[in-house]
Design a protein around this nucleic acid. Structure first.
Lengths: 207, 207, 207, 207
DNA sequence: CATGAATGAGTATTCATTCAT
DNA sequence: CATGAATGAATACTCATTCAT
């Protein structure tokens, strides 16, 4: 009976290496839809042609896939951000390019947005509440900011607070724009960078 | 263990009405520690000298205590914010007073901070992700902002994005400062309001 | 607070003796509606102006009220049946009067019908599955039947089976007629007694 | 205790498919003993060498096993009854064969009798009180009866009441005879059919 | 006697993870 | 490696009954 059904579904063809990807894809969809707590390993496996137990050949726990997922998204996004920042000639470009990259990335990968969104603030109990990727991304940005301060590109101030502020604006404006259709990452990025460059008195006027 | 906790909380001595407070306090601690999902009703009851079933004499469900808790904190904070804003003569005061109130409140009520923190982004699956209190608080602020724009107190711009930005900065800077000891709400509020008033070129310099 | 609400409801007036009746009435309604298993002692108390604990001043358990209730109904019905049978001059009258009394009683006390109905076959585990009242009622009838056999009023046969048959027909025809509106106890009683007197070949023809 | 029960039921040896049967058997015993309401899923699982959770690999709920059980018994019995009736040449045979089949079935499957017995009248609150199988069985019989009336095999009368009466006699006589040992289905069937054919004046005499 | 808050054992069901095949 | 049945601890919630007031 089993043998036959295996023949029928046939999808076993997918070579072993790609099973990991299949699970990751399924997990991304399921976590985005149900959140970490609401998703079960069987929900994930069911979204796959694989059996429940197979999951554990590729990931050691539910937590583990979740981390792999945020790892993945985080690295991708961090790489994009890093590249964008390197091309900046001044701080305004640095900021605006960062926001544009960030907003664009999620606008183009709404499932990743929902993944992050559904699981922000997870892992209560340990006070590190944004995924390690977010922490790492912010740390990189902070280094860049400190460098910029040293080079006199921007006034010296509290780099920690500034980095936090930049991140907070990114998160909250992302939430705001993702609720509307169509999403306009460009406008949002302009708004955010103008805010950081000149404050309310600046270019906000024409937004 | 039981004996001590009974002594500490003062068993049947506390009159009936105060049991509700005992449960609320226990719930606040447990949710802060374990998050909503990770906390069980029995965890809460255990933190109390009451039996499991007694919980349901005061709250109809786990959800119900949680809401009572965020109601409480939310209303308290919104009232403080509302009062602070009303005393502002100009937008700078408006912003700075808001931030100061907000940071001070959580600095003085760190358990409430942890409660909020542990449960940000709860309710995955539906896109309303911050508690209704947060939503309501932001809505109030947005109305004030729109009024300020109409009155010419600040340049006209996208009130939705601006409100989101103000909120995002509040959340993220709060997270930042709560990680350090001692917390300096004043400095953080000055930083945030300067950022909004003049951007990087402004008073950040002396932060 | 409590004192005031007591004053407001005022119904405390009902003298103590009548509390028992109030509880019985409430219990009858609740058991009829929800069945024994589905009904809670608090459901019963709530249908009353009395507090939960007061219930236990009058009945020692949920089981206890239930028994009092069937006691009550059972005795009432048995008295009616006994009287009806005594007035019978022959077996046909005996049977018909019994059925008529039985069907009429429940037609006029539909809540009692629902009480019995909702709880037939309760108390699994002990094989006595109809309330003791039913058992007692059937025992009385059986004695009458055995007497009738001895007196030659009806042919000798297995009194146990005959009694069971009479009872079974009573239950099942009651169920049948109570589902329709209006209920016609007379016709049902005629049908049932004709069946017992002549079988299918008898008066069924004109029913 | 565990060791023995494992030996008795033959633990993992029994192949997977047979677990379903083990659960069904355990459920039949438990429901017969405690009734539906009194039985817990853990009672059922405990009667098995399986874990609590395993139950839910085979049945989706407590209700589900119960239905499977009554389905099973009901279909079996209805098939037997249907076959018996088809072989009848006249109404007397029809009735007698039905009763004989019915009594014999439960005499040979006393656990099924106790199952039905313990759960007669379940589902209080909604007026459909006998399992769907009983309802269906009676509906089939009623159709046969109506056909017989049309064909003139029996006098025309109220088919609904007649069907109810036949069913009621079946239930109550079954209860009666199952209380004694040994059970004599033959004699009971003769008694019941004589009753329906000639009433008290008929062959009851020699019963 | 009346009250109603307190009790805590009990229920059905879910799910991450293991492991024999 | 893949399978999917088995596991059993864990969860939210109910309710008959008790008892301090």
């Amino acid at each position: 009976m089993n043998i036959e059904s295996k023949t029928v579904t046939g999808k076993r063809a997918s070579n072993r290496a790609s099973n990991r990807d299949a699970i990751l894809a399924a997990a991304r969809a399921v976590f985005a839809e149900l959140g970490y707590g609401g998703a079960s390993v069987r929900d994930i496996s069911r979204r796959t042609e694989l059996a429940t137990g197979t999951f554990y050949n590729y990931f050691s726990s539910k937590e583990d896939v979740f981390e792999a997922l945020t790892q993945e998204t985080g690295e991708e996004l961090r790489a994009l951000l890093s590249r964008a920042r390197k091309q900046a000639d001044n701080f305004e470009q640095f900021i605006e390019a960062s926001y544009l990259t960030y907003f664009t990335y999620y606008a183009e990968n709404p499932e990743n947005y929902r993944l992050v969104r559904s699981n922000r603030g997870r892992d209560a109990g340990n006070l590190k509440m944004q995924g390690p990727q977010v922490t790492a991304g912010l740390a990189e940005m902070r280094q860049d900011i400190e460098r910029a301060m040293k080079l006199g590109m921007i006034p010296k101030s509290d780099a920690a607070l500034l980095t936090a502020a930049i991140g907070g604006v990114a998160f909250s404006i992302l939430d705001e724009i993702m609720q509307h259709d169509p999403v306009d990452p460009n406008r949002a990025a302009k708004f955010a960078s103008a805010l950081f460059m000149q404050g309310l008195n600046g270019s906000l006027t024409d937004a």
